[in-house]
């Protein structure tokens, strides 16, 4: 699946939010072609990849360069409590939201354990 990615892909900036029933990974993918975004949960790894489609102006002199458009790739370990079957993702204006729901039984397992006094 990574064969078409440039070898020097860069790690996109992310925010990671944890809510009671899910985690959300918010990924900045400016210039990425939405149809090439791949969110892959395999074994214990969450792999995010995207190919850049934006074109730079041709036949112009570069006066200042603050960023380079390159393919994106970043890998995270998946915590045990993520329900892999229900992972979903959506993308708008170059921002990808990956929602990783927690398994209900995992939430139940998180119950606080009462410490009894002797």
């Amino acid at each position: 699946m990574y064969s078409k990615l440039q070898p020097d892909s860069i790690a996109p900036a992310v925010d990671i939010i944890e809510r009671k029933h899910e985690r959300v990974v918010v990924v900045d993918l400016p210039g990425a072609d939405e149809s090439t975004i791949e969110v892959n949960a395999e074994n214990d790894l969450l792999t995010l990849t995207a190919r850049v489609a934006a074109q730079e102006p041709q036949d112009m002199q570069v006066l200042y360069r603050g960023f380079e458009l390159r393919d994106y790739r970043r890998v995270f370990t998946l915590p045990d409590d993520v329900d892999r079957q229900r992972i979903s993702a959506k993308c708008k204006h170059g921002v990808l939201h990956v929602t990783l729901p927690k398994r209900p039984e995992a939430q139940a397992r998180r119950k606080q354990i009462k410490v009894e006094k002797e």
């Binding site: 990574y2 064969s3 070898p7 990671i16 944890e18 985690r23 990974v25 790894l45 969450l46 790739r73 970043r74 890998v75 995270f76 370990t77 998946l78 915590p79 990783l100």
Partner: peptide, 12 residues
């Protein structure tokens, strides 16, 4: 080509 070295990060 899968990069030989991939840094794996944690979510939490």
């Amino acid at each position: 080509m899968i990069p030989i070295l991939t840094r794996v990060e944690t979510l939490d």
